[in-house]
């Protein structure tokens, strides 16, 4: 029997566009034919986490959370709502940014579910952040003379929320591509409000590590950074703030290359999708997959 990919995303009761990146990435993967079925599922929309598996014909399912960090949603909500028997966060053996995958049975459908870590903590997410910077500047070689700010929500309920942001900021910094790389947060220090204080570079690309554009990425962050007094009037890209040109990218999750991260998660769990990964990287402007380790 065919294998299916089920993407688990947050969705929204209020914002019609919250689901859009999920649909877009699912469509990209669907078009590769790598899976017999590709299904979107949502915490706040339908099909719900509770009922997505029963709409899938395949006996074997790769379940990939379209979430940024590991923690409450990936360790409690999703396994519970999908009724994954004998789930234990220890199965991922993660330090907060190193989730792997676990193979479990779904209690209500008996399907075999390869439950993968979230897209946000996969290594290839660093590539998506960089690509987002390329997209917003229109420069495939962006880096020299630029600072990069990776922005996250902050701790809230979950200490891993900040870890994922710092993890990718560190990885990108090590590449020496941007003059400076800094992680910033909405509700803790260093705060995104003070973005100009944290960089010496004249140009700063700001990439929020969010799955979908919504209140935080479209209203709070642009206003907090001083790109605009009122998000409804919009802002320019770049906008000059305190002598720096701020290139605000909007949610990283809308970058087409995100589809690659979803596939990488499934591949790590054993899905045979290498040609789909190649195809998606080609279509979405990602780098060629590295050969060997």
């Amino acid at each position: 029997m065919d294998e299916a990919l089920v993407i688990a995303a947050h969705g929204s009761h209020l914002n019609a566009e919250s689901s859009t990146p999920t649909y877009d990435h699912a469509d990209t993967i669907r078009a590769t034919g790598a899976f017999g079925e590709v299904r979107e599922s949502f915490w706040k929309e339908e099909p719900s986490f509770r009922e997505a598996l029963r709409t899938v014909d395949a006996e074997e399912v790769y379940l990939v959370p379209l979430f940024i960090s590991e923690g409450y949603f990936t360790e409690q909500v999703i396994p519970r709502e999908f009724r994954l028997e004998d789930w234990d966060p220890e199965l991922w053996d993660s330090d907060g940014t190193s989730a792997t995958n676990a193979t479990l049975a779904a209690e209500d459908t008996d399907q075999t579910v390869h439950y993968c870590g979230p897209v946000g903590t996969h290594d290839s997410m660093s590539d998506v952040i960089v690509q987002r910077a390329e997209s917003v500047t229109g420069d495939p070689d962006v880096g020299d003379g630029f600072g990069l700010a990776v922005v996250g929500h902050g701790t809230e309920r979950n200490e891993n929320s900040a870890k994922a942001i710092q993890y990718h900021a560190d990885r990108i910094r090590e590449r020496d591509r941007f003059d400076e790389v800094q992680s910033l947060f909405m509700d803790e220090d260093p705060e995104v409000d003070d973005v100009a204080d944290y960089f010496e570079s004249d140009d700063i690309v700001v990439v929020p590590l969010f799955i979908a554009d919504g209140f935080h990425t479209q209203e709070d962050i642009p206003e907090d950074m001083g790109l605009t007094d009122d998000y409804r009037t919009g802002y320019d890209v770049p906008t000059t703030v305190e002598g720096h040109d701020i290139w605000y990218a909007g949610a990283v999750g809308t970058e087409p290359l995100m589809a690659d991260v979803v596939l990488e998660r499934a591949a790590d769990a054993g899905a045979d999708v290498s040609s789909a990964i190649e195809q998606v990287r080609e279509e979405t402007g990602g780098a060629k997959p590295a050969t060997g380790d």
Binding site: E46, P47, S48, E51, A52, T55, D108
Partner: peptide
């Protein structure tokens, strides 16, 4: 199923006496 997700699955489970 795109208009009304999971309605077919649950309708069928109910007809089979297996609605959870």
């Amino acid at each position: 199923d795109a208009f009304y997700p999971a309605t077919i699955a649950n309708w069928h489970r109910e007809r089979e006496g297996e609605l959870d």
